[in-house]
Simulated assay, not measured.
Amino acid sequence: MSYPLRPLLFALDAERAHALTLKALGVRAKLPYPAAKLNPRLATRIGSLSFANPLGVAAGLDKDGVAIEGLFGLGFGAVEMGTLTPVPQSGNAKPRLFRLVADRAVINRMGFNNGGLEAGLARARIAARGTGRLGINVGANKDATDRVADYVAGVSAAAPIADYVTINISSPNTPGLRDLQHGAALDELLAACTGARGDTPLFLKVAPDLDAAAIDGVVRAAIESRIDAIIMGNTTISRPALRSPQAGETGGLSGAPLAALARQRLADVRGASGGAIALIAAGGIDSGAEAYARIRAGASLVQVYSALVFEGPGLARCILHDLDRLLARDGFTDVAQAVAA
């Protein structure tokens, strides 16, 4: 895919380039551009929530909701902003974001840097969505003494504004956060958050580093708590063979090298759930073919982030064009028919 601005952006520090891109998308949202044409074959749904297409922006790209309208303008059916924490926090020390160009990957140790719930939700409240769905991803502050209370505060504040809310307990960059993915801690968290969401769909984002026993536990807890969907997954702390000089940086790895692991864990969650809960796939998705493979493996939605760094703003329309062609080739009239087919 041709991406003329990539050499210019790649000449900059990764975090600075990211900030400039978001700023440009925020400006673009104020300019007229043609609305994306609705294609019935790309329609999908999770429970009562319908989506014009199954392609979403993963949380982490637009933490503070400064580019919501611009991202929808690129063609995405869903944009998930955040992670938002109750109190603003600066995150980990810089540098903390690294491009692995030779691997088409990214390593980050951002640490939930964001301007806080109040500021983020104020932007979300006024952002035009068109036919898109806005998700709000919430987390706990690093120094919180009661992390469950932080999540409840996030869910209760975001639920009246969001089309869906995501509980993020899978970031590797907040010490101890992933402990909430297991046992009694997970049960307590989900019980508290489901009581705070009202009628808003609630999603749970988990890590691709979970083993089979942990996946079984997450699926059981999510189904029992009536969570609407599981997002599999987040970045990984594992390290497949990498060629880039930055491969030794600590943090979560995303992008192309994550695809095989994310694909396998999606299949594991589907096997553990037997289709009893909706699934959303993230991790290494960079083409219509990969998006289609995740849908056929059980995902109702797919999310991208790192691929945008390397492919640019035209990625969404390319993926949707190819996905439409693949669905038509196999005789599906909408995405829902292809899920786990």
Results as ranks from 00 to 15, higher is better:
K205Q: 03
K205F: 01
K205W: 03
K205N: 09
K205R: 08
V206S: 09
V206R: 13
V206H: 12
V206Q: 12
V206Y: 11
A207H: 08
A207T: 13
A207M: 09
P208R: 06
D209T: 02
L210N: 04
D211F: 04
D211H: 05
D211A: 03
D211Q: 01
D211G: 02
D211W: 01
A212L: 13
A212E: 15
A213S: 15
A213L: 14
A213T: 14
A214L: 05
A214I: 07
A214N: 06
A214Q: 13
A214S: 12
I215T: 07
I215D: 00
I215V: 11
G217C: 01
G217W: 01
G217P: 01
G217K: 00
G217M: 01
V218H: 02
V218W: 02
V219R: 04
V219C: 03
V219S: 00
V219L: 07
R220D: 10
A221F: 03
A222R: 05
I223A: 04
E224F: 10
E224C: 13
S225I: 03
S225D: 02
S225G: 03
S225P: 04
R226W: 00
R226G: 00
I227S: 02
I227Q: 08
I227E: 03
I227F: 06
D228S: 12
A229W: 07
I230Q: 02
I230K: 00
I231D: 15
I231N: 15
I231H: 14
M232A: 13
M232Q: 11
G233A: 15
G233Q: 09
G233H: 13
G233P: 14
G233E: 09
N234V: 12
N234K: 11
N234W: 12
N234H: 13
T235A: 14
T235E: 11
T235Y: 06
T236F: 07
I237H: 00
I237W: 00
S238F: 05
S238P: 00
R239D: 05
R239G: 06
R239E: 04
P240I: 08
P240M: 10
P240C: 10
P240N: 11
A241I: 10
A241G: 05
L242R: 03
R243T: 13
R243M: 11
R243D: 15
